[in-house]
C-alpha cells in the first residue's frame, strides 16, 4: 500500500531536491517521518507495503531509501539488496526495532549506508540523510574530476 499520492511516471530530482523513499509497515513511522523530511526540503514518498515500494523503485530512482527490516512479504534485507542492484549510488538507511549485531553487519555487507535502531530521534535520522547527501556530492565531484 502506498500513501504517496504521486503519479507513477518516473520523475527526476525536482528543483534540486533529493528524493527519499520511506518503507515501514508501521504507518506511524511513515506518518511522522514524511513531514519532517518535507520540512527539511526533501521530496518524500512513503510506503507501508514492501511489494508496492519494490514496484516503485523498479520504475524510478531515489537518492535515498529508508527501510524497515522486519516486514511481511519482501523483507527489508531483500529490499535493500534490490535497491542497490538497481541503483548502487542510492544511499540506504536501515531502521529496525530488532537491532542485533548480525543484522547490522549483514545490512552493511549488502551496502547500507547506516543502520539505525528504533526508537530514534528525528534529528538523528535527518543528520544521517545529510551525511548521505554529502557523500553523494563528494562521489559526484570525484567522478567529474576523473572524467
Amino acid at each position: 500500500m502506498t500513501d504517496h499520492g504521486k503519479s507513477a511516471d518516473p520523475v527526476e530530482k525536482t528543483l534540486g531536491r533529493a528524493r527519499i523513499l520511506i518503507l515501514d509497515d508501521e504507518p506511524i513511522v511513515c506518518k511522522r517521518l514524511k513531514p519532517a523530511f518535507q520540512k527539511a526540503g526533501y521530496e518524500v514518498e512513503t510506503f507501508t507495503d514492501s511489494a508496492h515500494a519494490l514496484a516503485r523503485v523498479e520504475e524510478t530512482r531515489f537518492d535515498i531509501v529508508i527501510t524497515d527490516l522486519k516486514m511481511e512479504g519482501v523483507d527489508g534485507m531483500r529490499f535493500l539488496s534490490r535497491v542497490k542492484e538497481l541503483s548502487p549510488e542510492t544511499g540506504v538507511v536501515v531502521i529496525t526495532g530488532f537491532a542485533t549485531l548480525d543484522t547490522a553487519k549483514e545490512s552493511f555487507r549488502k551496502g547500507a549506508f547506516d543502520f539505525v535502531a528504533k526508537p530514534f530521534k528525528l534529528a538523528d535520522i535527518l543528520d544521517t540523510v545529510r551525511r548521505i547527501e554529502d557523500k553523494q556530492r563528494l562521489d559526484a565531484e570525484l567522478r567529474v574530476g576523473k572524467g
Binding site: 506511524i28 526495532g97 528504533k118 526508537p119 530514534f120 528525528l122
Partner: peptide
C-alpha cells in the same frame, strides 16, 4: 522517562519499542 519522552514526540518509535 524514555516512554514518557516518546509521548512528547522526541522519538520515532513503533510497536516493537513499546513491547520491548
Amino acid at each position: 522517562a524514555g516512554l514518557e519522552r516518546a509521548l512528547g514526540g522526541e522519538y520515532i518509535f513503533d510497536r516493537a519499542f513499546l513491547e520491548t
